[in-house]
Amino acid sequence: MIRRTLVIAAAATLGIVGLTGCVSGTGQDAAGTTVHVVSTATECTLSANTAPRGTVVFSVTNSGDSVTEFYVLADDGNRTVGEVENIGPGITRDVRVEVQAGEFFTLCKPGMVGDGVGKARFTVTDTR
């Protein structure tokens, strides 16, 4: 019985990984729009503050001395739309979000603590 339970658990796990893994990323606009972000101790600079709807990849480079995180928030400034953590100093990491037209916020969180720095508006337009 234990073995059967384990097999079911393992199968379910692999199924979840397979499903969630495949749904995203595939599709016609897998490439999407890339926005480069530079995070320092005090600033969070984006190469663009607007992008067309669809897939937006934020490529975040940590130029500071402490580990940083990058967030994309909904226009209530609260709900997390996208997030990437564990961006060590000198490292660049991507976060991929699927967004509809609307207003968003972006911010960096050097030191992984507090409200973050460089909170700014980010607009997603209805054009493609």
Binding site: T13, G25, A30
Partner: peptide
Amino acid sequence: GTLGLSFESQELIGGTLSIVATAL
């Protein structure tokens, strides 16, 4: 590669595997 994993998917995988790991 050209494939990408969306933010939600990555969190969903991490979260689900964690809970399965706890059970096991």
